[in-house]
Simulated scan of single mutants.
Amino acid sequence: MIDPDLSDLGALVAVAQARNFRAAAALRGVSASSLSEAIRRLETRVGVRLLNRTTRSVTPTEAGVQLLERLTPALGDIAGALDALNRFRDSPTGTLKLNVPTIAAQRILSPIINRFLAAHPGITLEISATDSFIDVLAAGFDAGIRYDESIERDMIAIPIGPRTQRFVVGAAPSYLAEHGIPEHPHDLVNHACIRHRFASGVIPSWEFERDGKTIKITPKGPLIASTAELGVGAAVAGLGLIHIFEEYLSDAFQSGDLVPVLTEWWQSFTGPRLYYPSRTHMPVPLRAFVDFIKSPAERAAQEHLTPLHPSSRCAMTRLP
């Protein structure tokens, strides 16, 4: 009779989903060598090779594919059954893993998660910030935060954080005094512009809208930054105009280090959403987070996150 260890079976699923021992080890919080040993131990017990390993990739064999097709949902049911025991505790426990955009991690989530963790001291929240699109479930996350056009249609999505955001344009007074104030988005082609490159390699165009007319600009400038902080610092130093989430410029606008530009062209978009699969057995930490986000008191707190300039059109660009 074949009697493999349950943890070894879990190791097989993790490696097969990640297609990489190191990535699977990072998600499980163990060493790659321990996972490799678990797979060798499992293959010895069943007497069949389950994974093909090369220096570049790890893929299931035909036998591995057949085992995984039945094993993955079975392990999910076991995890769900064990996690359901949380309902008999005074306070839910466990770890909740979220994959979120950088802007959410840096400027939106802090007050929300502070309130959530204060209400649920038994839960550990693990947040990974990235602007690259990934399969969050295959990568080992319980849920993700993205914007509407980035969310798979088979996912459940609920608003989290501000209901609208802006992608605004600002420049230092010294820059505008020397180069003039652009009156129309087309004027930006004659200005120095500080651009951003996402981790995916995409350098987004600058998009504006007014009276139903949309204009996209591909600007030029002295700096392409991979972080918001670098770009904002360059703008404050007078190197050019910057087009970025308002949350990154609100302090500089209030202090006068930067001046809002082209405000009548700012475009409105809906805010981010928490998304997760429709599961029969939702992990208790995720259920607690969803219930918290949907609670009337928390919705009211998030809806008070209003833009800096309420009279202007709101704006936010999509992540690439």
Score class of each variant (00 low, 15 high):
residue 39 I to R: 01
residue 45 R to S: 10
residue 46 V to H: 01
residue 50 L to N: 02
residue 51 L to T: 02
residue 53 R to S: 04
residue 54 T to P: 03
residue 62 E to D: 13
residue 63 A to G: 02
residue 69 E to I: 07
residue 74 A to K: 10
residue 75 L to M: 08
residue 76 G to L: 00
residue 80 G to H: 01
residue 86 N to Y: 08
residue 86 N to D: 12
residue 92 P to D: 14
residue 94 G to K: 06
residue 94 G to W: 09
residue 108 I to T: 13
residue 117 L to G: 06
residue 117 L to A: 12
residue 118 A to C: 04
residue 118 A to W: 08
residue 124 T to A: 14
residue 124 T to Y: 07
residue 124 T to M: 06
residue 125 L to P: 00
residue 127 I to V: 15
residue 129 A to I: 07
residue 130 T to V: 02
residue 132 S to K: 13
residue 140 G to N: 00
residue 143 A to I: 03
residue 146 R to N: 14
residue 150 S to P: 01
residue 152 E to P: 04
residue 152 E to W: 12
residue 152 E to K: 12
residue 152 E to M: 15
residue 156 I to T: 15
residue 160 I to M: 04
residue 172 A to T: 01
residue 173 P to C: 13
residue 173 P to A: 12
residue 180 G to R: 10
residue 184 H to M: 11
residue 184 H to F: 14
residue 190 N to R: 14
residue 199 A to D: 15
residue 201 G to P: 02
residue 202 V to M: 07
residue 212 G to H: 05
residue 214 T to W: 04
residue 220 K to A: 13
residue 221 G to K: 01
residue 221 G to D: 05
residue 222 P to L: 05
residue 223 L to G: 04
residue 226 S to E: 09
residue 228 A to N: 14
residue 240 G to I: 03
residue 241 L to F: 09
residue 246 E to A: 11
residue 265 W to Q: 01
residue 267 Q to P: 00
residue 268 S to K: 06
residue 271 G to S: 03
residue 294 K to E: 15
residue 295 S to D: 11
residue 298 E to D: 05
residue 305 L to Q: 04
residue 308 L to K: 07
residue 311 S to P: 00
residue 320 P to Q: 05
